[in-house]
């Protein structure tokens, strides 16, 4: 499928010819797409396809080799407050001396501002966010004493506390229990019904149809993107996961050595 990105300034996330490289080896190549507003969007692709890198590049967490990203027509720097982020659970040190509430309050730091202390309404907002993921009882539990699923819900609550318009989530469903999966899905649907845009790096092909409206099939390049019904086809999946890209990755390896 050929992607015709109109690059409208009203798109929550508009990506223009984005290329990202680690040690000169491209991991994302000429990604060009507009993400639709108010939808649940899955980014799907094999390991090393650049799924996490795509959302990190959108948020300026990794340097771009070329291309640009617009959040509602402006640079990310100007629109930070519109964006909430759920990193991969393994990316942080769960032995850090902090309780669940403390982690969720971090979602409010942007609103609090530099060098100011946490206000009462931030703690309140954090408690409400914990309530939305069913973790009120664990607010004062040290985070290392939470199960993996509970930790993931704390991360989700933190993003909710950010109270943003666009949500990026990096594998929120990775190795969570059934109760957590249910809680996350409920939160995702709530977000959609209040008009938010949610972009989720997703690894479970079985649940894409059930959970998401849109899908971005990614393997270094965008293989296809659009409504799940149209795009999430066997043919496209084969293209995404199949061997057709070996030539491309070979070229990428050579670029790295140059």
């Amino acid at each position: 499928m050929k992607i015709e990105a109109g690059h409208s300034p009203t798109s929550p996330v508009s990506i223009h010819d984005l290329t990202v490289a680690y040690h000169r080896k491209p991991v994302l190549w000429d990604v060009d797409l507009d993400i639709p507003e108010g939808k649940l969007i899955a980014i799907v692709g094999p390991n090393g396809a650049g799924k996490s890198t795509l959302i990190k590049a959108v948020m300026d967490l990794v340097p771009k080799a070329s291309g640009k990203v617009m959040i509602y027509g402006k640079s990310f720097k100007k629109q930070r407050k519109l964006v909430a982020y759920v990193p991969q659970r393994e990316s942080v040190d769960w032995d850090f001396p902090i309780d669940a509430l403390g982690v969720v309050v971090m979602g409010r730091y942007n609103k609090i501002g530099w060098c100011k202390s946490v206000r009462k309404r931030d703690t309140q907002a954090a408690m409400e966010a914990l309530d939305r993921v069913g973790m009120t009882d664990y607010a004062h539990r040290q985070i290392s004493q939470l199960s993996g699923g509970q930790q993931q819900r704390v991360f989700l609550a933190r993003a909710l506390a950010q109270d943003s318009t666009i949500y990026f989530m990096d594998e929120p469903f990775a190795s969570v229990d059934a109760a957590t999966e249910k809680a996350i899905v409920k939160v995702l649907r709530d977000l959609r019904s209040s008009g938010k845009t949610v972009v989720v790096v997703h690894h479970d092909l079985q649940t894409v149809r059930e959970y998401f409206d849109h899908v971005i099939l990614l393997n270094m390049r965008v293989v296809a993107h659009g409504p799940v019904d149209e795009v999430f086809t066997d043919a496209n999946l084969k293209k995404t996961y199949g061997g057709r890209l070996t030539l491309l990755s070979e070229a990428a390896d050579r670029l790295a050595r140059h």
């Binding site: 948020m59 300026d60 982020y85 990193p87 990316s91």
Partner: peptide, 13 residues
């Protein structure tokens, strides 16, 4: 920034 540098950076810290 000690606990979650990625989140901090996305928030401009």
């Amino acid at each position: 920034t000690s606990f979650d540098p990625a989140l901090a950076k996305s928030q401009g810290i």
